[in-house]
Computed example of a mutant assay.
Amino acid sequence: MPGPYRKHFIPLESDPEVFTRLLHKLGISPDLRFQEIYAIDEPDQLPHPALALVFIFPAPAAYEVQKAKEDSGSSEYAGGDDQDVMWFKQTIHNACGFYALLHSVCNGPAKAYIQPGTLLGRLMDTCRSLGTEDRIRVLEDSKELETIYAEAAREGGTPVPGAEEEVDSHYICFVKSTGNSHLYELDGDRKGPVDKGFVEADDVLAEESLNVVKQYMQDAGLGHGLMALVSDSAR
């Protein structure tokens, strides 16, 4: 993915077990986990409630052109603790999986599962009131984050590409704001959060959210994947 990258990570495999292990190492309660979603046509068969969704899809050049066009009329996200959602600009190459994971746990009900004193707990305490550029520096300067991430990125079942290699897939996150009850697309490669409209239920696998995700799946074509962040009590 193109962008003003100042650091490079090994790409994270789109495996819910890899994501879950990284989640727990960063400091989220063991009560949360990622679960693969194979089909969304039967809502009763999905895990409810879902706290966040991570969407993985091929990102050809045409996608980058379309994204730039959509963002051309948008203002840059300013950061601070008065925003409807917490968003991080991606400046670490090949780390879109990590940013999707971070966005999924720093927003909505998942925030309550961040354990105090852990790396993620400290990052949240530090970044909550910061502007975009200062949040960037916090993530880039954390050696502890880099070490934990590198360990998780090497635990997948496929060959590990180099940190500076270009990969074709991209990760984004969908969360519901606890402030205004709107669904947001969170992609660190954009100018900021993208508001996708009001969602009544406290579940990002609710009907309104599923309609949004279905459109993304249709646009992405073959090769996409979907993971839900759920608690052990999800049915």
Score class of each variant (00 low, 15 high):
Asp187Met: 10
Ser233Met: 08
Met227His: 01
Leu229His: 03
Ile148Thr: 09
His224Asp: 02
Arg154Ser: 06
Gln218Pro: 00
Ile148Met: 10
Val212Leu: 14
Leu53Gln: 08
Asp84Phe: 13
Leu12Cys: 07
Val230Trp: 06
Leu101Arg: 04
Ala78Cys: 13
Ala95Val: 02
Tyr149Asp: 02
Ala110Tyr: 09
Pro159Ile: 12
Ser14Cys: 10
His103Arg: 11
His24Ser: 14
Ser177Ile: 11
Met124Lys: 14
Leu102Met: 07
Ser104Pro: 02
Ser75Cys: 13
Gln45Lys: 15
His103Trp: 01
Tyr99Asn: 11
Cys96Phe: 10
Phe174Pro: 05
Ala112His: 13
Ala68Lys: 03
Thr118Tyr: 09
Thr147Cys: 14
Ala100Phe: 01
Asp41Gln: 14
Ala152Tyr: 09
Ala150Lys: 14
Gly79Ala: 13
Met217Arg: 11
Arg235Leu: 04
Ser181Ile: 00
Cys96Ser: 11
Val160Phe: 08
Leu186Asn: 05
Pro4Cys: 02
Lys143Ala: 15
Leu102Phe: 05
His24Phe: 14
Ala95Glu: 06
Ser231Arg: 10
Lys196Pro: 08
Lys69Pro: 03
Asn180Phe: 12
Glu185Tyr: 06
Lys67Leu: 04
Thr132Ile: 10
Met86Lys: 03
Phe98Ala: 09
Leu101Tyr: 01
Ala39Gln: 08
Val230Ser: 03
Met1Tyr: 06
Asp31Ile: 05
Gly223Ala: 11
Val65Phe: 04
Leu139Phe: 09
Arg154Ile: 06
Ser104Met: 04
Asp44Lys: 14
Arg128Gln: 13
Val160Ala: 02
Asp195Arg: 06
